[in-house]
Design a protein around this nucleic acid. Structure first.
Lengths: 177, 177
DNA sequence: CTGATCATGTAATTCGTTACATGATTCC
DNA sequence: GGAATCATGTAACGAATTACATGATCAG
């Protein structure tokens, strides 16, 4: 593999019509963040690197009042993105879940502490679910109207995912009681 | 926060009766790995650091034929572990899921490619589910017999989690068809 | 005797976050 | 005029993986 996964986030966001580092980050924060986060500290240096590699092309953009640098995918960038989208390399999957980690070691705790732990996990995922639901009428909607249905499908998956964990916690809370 | 989350994995594994870096890593690989991974490159240096901090105490262990270093929790280590288990600090939660990331950008693909993508995700989680199921009769069982029920509960959660994703993919595959 | 397992560690590298620094412009 | 937002970047740090290096012992 040549590029980091986060590079593909950038290439993908450019294809979705974002053009500056700032715009990419803004969209990441209301979409892919829930399954692939990225920060300015990655995005700006990576844009520069992708330009060196000839996958994107940037230029000063005077169209808005503000000084900014707009990028576009090059033909090579389009190819790189498609190659990644259709490749059958093993998929990176990584979960770090401190709440579940605590549960794993919770035999030494009092029952009410264990109950509290399930509850904390549930609350966290309820919060995440609410955040996702609040996006339903925002960027996902906008994408759908442009004829892109996958952002919405992925959002729906995210909501179902959070709901699954919430429901599981509820069942465990009931059992623990 | 003082210690990394991975430090608590180490402290927790010591409480569960593991005593060497090797034993800790072995148990991690068949248990917490699915929601909190750790490598030798973290475990050995971290054990040394925890000893400096007075949270664990290590000594040369001649009980087996092999040269090894056995660690135990100190009183301070026990306290640190309990404090973490019962603290209500925000829980670290992080998901990196390349398959879902690809789906997000998959509007540009042909329908059969999208279908293939859901299928790849499903297969990956089926594999993970099978791995977890194969642990049911192994370490989780052993823990249960020692009176620890949480390792099993967490394993069951892991299985249900993988199954949820598998089922979701199946529904999407049917829809995409 | 030989391969699997037990066992410990380090070095290089990658990936990513956080905090900082800076400044223009737009909206109220 | 002031706050929010747009906008770009860097430096320091932290977390974690991978690959390497080494070697003893145990089971067949």
């Amino acid at each position: 593999m040549e590029l980091s996964k986060t590079s593909y986030v950038i290439l993908g966001m450019l294809r979705l019509g974002r053009s500056t580092g700032y715009e990419i980050k803004s969209l990441v924060d209301v979409s892919t963040r829930f399954f692939w986060a990225a920060s300015y500290g990655q995005i700006y240096p990576e844009l520069a690197r992708l330009e060196e590699l000839g996958l994107v092309h940037g230029k000063r953009d005077e169209s808005s009042g503000r000084r900014r640098r707009s990028y576009e995918l090059t033909a090579a960038g389009e190819r790189a993105l498609d190659a990644w989208l259709t490749s059958s390399e093993p998929l990176h999957f990584e979960l770090r879940h401190e709440g579940v980690l605590k549960l794993f070691f919770s035999d030494s705790l009092a029952p009410e502490e264990r109950l509290a732990q399930w509850r904390r996990i549930r609350e966290e995922h309820e919060r995440l679910g609410d955040q996702l639901r609040s996006l339903s009428s925002g960027p996902a909607d906008a994408a759908t109207e442009e004829g892109k249905r996958m952002p919405r499908e992925v959002l729906d998956f995210g909501i179902a995912y959070q709901d699954f964990i919430v429901d599981y916690c509820k069942r465990m809370e009931a059992k623990e009681d």
